[in-house]
Amino acid sequence: MIKIAGLHKALGGKPVLQGVDLQIGKGESCVIIGGSGAGKSVLIKCILGLMTPDGGTITINDAPRTRDFMDDIGMLFQGGALFDSLPVWQNVGFKLLRGADKAQARDIAITKLAQVGLTPDIADRYPSELSGGMLKRVGLARAIAADPKVIFFDEPTTGLDPIMAGVINDLIRQVVADLGVTAVTITHDISSVHAIADKVAMLHDGVIRWIGPKAEIATATDPYLKQFILGSSDGPIRSRW
């Protein structure tokens, strides 16, 4: 279980997170929504330890997070963040290449690629030769390659056409169900919320503005959440220029 309490983080002199409280249970699929620039990526980077928070606590199973946490997680980055100097299979099998031998890592990588609907012939291609949808899938395969206990998805559908977005949503739901992992997804895409969430948290103005089970978002009365779900320009959220 991941427990976040009173998390603060300022960047470039601007407060981004201003007291985030959030608990994510084991095996739960939590989707964090919020406008772009709300601080969703910053929140995930603080949880992972890629950024050092200015204040607050983060505990994993009631203990402070250690370096070993990275051994148990997978992360799908917003832009894929694939290593362009390495072929696809070495990207996917990156973590495995340290322990297992090369042939074995390659076999596992190809199995993982198949799980996300990619054929073995792309294993030897380089990331620069792939389309946006394929990059997301390879990123997804890399995130699940080392059988993580927690997977983080940063805007898995952003920049994809609606059909490919649906495919990625289905893949995520499927791997989360198959592997029984805890999933933390950040998105501003409502279709992802419907497809993969158990629990929804809305980040706004540096705090969790609303949190609840997915079933409750339809009946929620919070004006911020309602405006976000409806995508209307009319409401308390001001678009900032």
Binding site: K45, L48, G49, L50, M70, D71, I73, G74, M75, F77, Q78, G79, A81, L82, F83, D84, F94, K95, R98, R142
Partner: peptide, 16 residues
Amino acid sequence: TMKVTEQIDALLTLST
């Protein structure tokens, strides 16, 4: 380029 495309962060999440 690796830094700005989050590849450095990705390395860290891969325990490297």
